[in-house]
Each structure stands twice: as structure tokens, then as C-alpha cells.
């Protein structure tokens, strides 16, 4: 497959079998399809994906841990005619950045969040995330996540669906060709909505972290299917106006 124009020709630092790379490609393809590379500004967050500012061939800002939606807000208010997206992991978005994510949606901020849910903190070595599944063993839930003391995993798409200001919320997965195709459509749709001024959009992508899950890439994909899909059902959680999902 040819490299999308919106991706820089350089090797990426992700572990073998990590699905961050697939998600980068989906975003770049959507930018190419909509032909908006020269009007796109991306915001990298803090996590394994921090170097996205090097990988996308468009203007980029790197934001503090959890604050990408606020940085994106500042950018979008200055350049309303651009496509502004953030790229955030589940620790970044659903823990330290919960308030920023939620309030960007509440304001109906016309930005797109690409939310990569791999049920763990990748970059810092595999600690428990708000999205870590019940019973899942991580560096900081060595006995498996316990409901009594650590609560239930956070469902971001379901939560955002209750926010009036959110225009489009969909959860997709990158575990199979079929799902990747649907994911590509979702990213494209979110970007299109933004360019049409429809308001806040977020695409949650279920993703793997073979390294910190302690699994081979193939085992990791199976684990995602068996464990994440039942807890995080795929689908459109909110679609305000425009075509029906």
C-alpha cells in the first residue's frame, strides 16, 4: 500500500504489532481523502503517541498530559477554518484529561478527538488505566483490577453520548480488516463533520498494547476481541444531524 501523503516518510518508534501505526494511517488517509492536509493542525498528547507531531505531515502542536483538547480549543478558536484534531491515549484522555475532554464536548467545541483505548498506560510501562478491564493484571493492579477498590472501567463513548454538545461519537476497533474499514469511515466522518461545522466529535478506537499486555501481537488481537469487545461494544453512540449512521 502506498504511504498516505499526510504521513511523513520516516520509521515510527512503536513496538512490533502495536496498533498505533494502523490508526496513524487511518487518520492520514482521511486527511488525504478530504484533501485538507494544508489546513490541518494536529495536537499530540503525552503517551506512546507523543511523537505523532513528527509523523503527520501537517502543522502540529505537542500538548501537556491530558490537555490536548484545551490546546486544540485555543488553536481552533484562532483558525476556525482548519481541521483540528487531538490524538490521545486512555490515560491521557480518561484519567488526567477527563475534565478537558468532557468540557470540550460540553462547549460543543468544533474539534475531533482520536481516542486510542488500549486499556493500559503504555509509555510508562503498563500501569492500570481508567479503561483497564475488571480482573486485568497490570503493573499497578498486580492482583487484577478489583471493583471494590479500583472501581469499574470507564466507558468514554457512552459517557460522551449524554453530552448535548457532542455531535458525533463512535467506537470502533482495529482488530480485523472489517473493523479497520469501519474505523476508517468513522475517522473520515468525524473530520467531515468538523469541516461542516457540526461540532465536537470523538472516535474511540480499541487498540492493542502487546508489550505491556505481555502477549504476542496475534495473542493481543485475540485478547482484544475476547475481552474488550464485550465490555466496549462497537457502534455509533451519537450522531447529531447529517446522514444516519
Amino acid at each position: 500500500m502506498a504511504r498516505p501523503k499526510a504521513l511523513v516518510d520516516m520509521s515510527q518508534h512503536y513496538c512490533p504489532g502495536c496498533t498505533h501505526g494502523i490508526i496513524h494511517r487511518l487518520i492520514a488517509e482521511a486527511i488525504d481523502t478530504l484533501d485538507i492536509q494544508d489546513r490541518t493542525i494536529g495536537v499530540a498528547s503525552v503517551g506512546c503517541s507523543v511523537f505523532t507531531y513528527k509523523y503527520f505531515d501537517c502543522d502540529m502542536q505537542q500538548a501537556a498530559h491530558g490537555r490536548a483538547p484545551s490546546a486544540a480549543t485555543g488553536i481552533k478558536r484562532v483558525h476556525p477554518d482548519t481541521l483540528v484534531f487531538t490524538y490521545q491515549g486512555d490515560g491521557d484522555l480518561a484519567a488526567i484529561g477527563t475534565a478537558e475532554m468532557l468540557h470540550a464536548a460540553i462547549r460543543g467545541e468544533n474539534i475531533t478527538i482520536i481516542f486510542v483505548n488500549n486499556a493500559i498506560y503504555g509509555m510508562t510501562g503498563g500501569q492500570m488505566a481508567p479503561t483497564t478491564l475488571v480482573g486485568q493484571v497490570t503493573q499497578t493492579s498486580p492482583y487484577g483490577r478489583q471493583i471494590e477498590t479500583q472501581g469499574y472501567p470507564m466507558k468514554v463513548s457512552e459517557t460522551l453520548a449524554t453530552i448535548e454538545g457532542a455531535a458525533y461519537i463512535e467506537r470502533v476497533s482495529v482488530d480485523s480488516v472489517k473493523h479497520i474499514k469501519a474505523a476508517k469511515k468513522a475517522v473520515e466522518k468525524a473530520f467531515r463533520y468538523q469541516m461542516e461545522g457540526k461540532g465536537f466529535s470523538l472516535v474511540e478506537l480499541l487498540s492493542t498494547c502487546p508489550t505491556n499486555w505481555g502477549l504476542s501481537p496475534i495473542e493481543a488481537t485475540d485478547w482484544l476481541r475476547e475481552n474488550m469487545l464485550p465490555h466496549y461494544p462497537l457502534g455509533v453512540y451519537k450522531d447529531k444531524g447529517g446522514e444516519q449512521a
Binding site: 490537555r67 490546546a71 486544540a72 485555543g74 488553536i75 484562532v78 478537558e100
Partner: peptide, 26 residues
């Protein structure tokens, strides 16, 4: 111009970061 009341000072300063990076007087 834009006046925006953020949800916290943490968020507000990061909006400043974004807008300043985008070239605005902020």
C-alpha cells in the same frame, strides 16, 4: 475577539498555549 471561561485554570492556560502556538495575541 474570543472570551472563553474554561473549566479550570489548568485548561485555560493550555488554551493559551494552543492559541499562542497558532500565532495569536493571547
Amino acid at each position: 475577539g474570543v472570551y472563553l471561561q474554561a473549566e479550570s485554570e489548568v485548561s485555560a492556560i493550555n488554551m493559551v498555549y494552543g492559541a499562542a502556538g497558532a500565532g495569536a495575541r493571547v
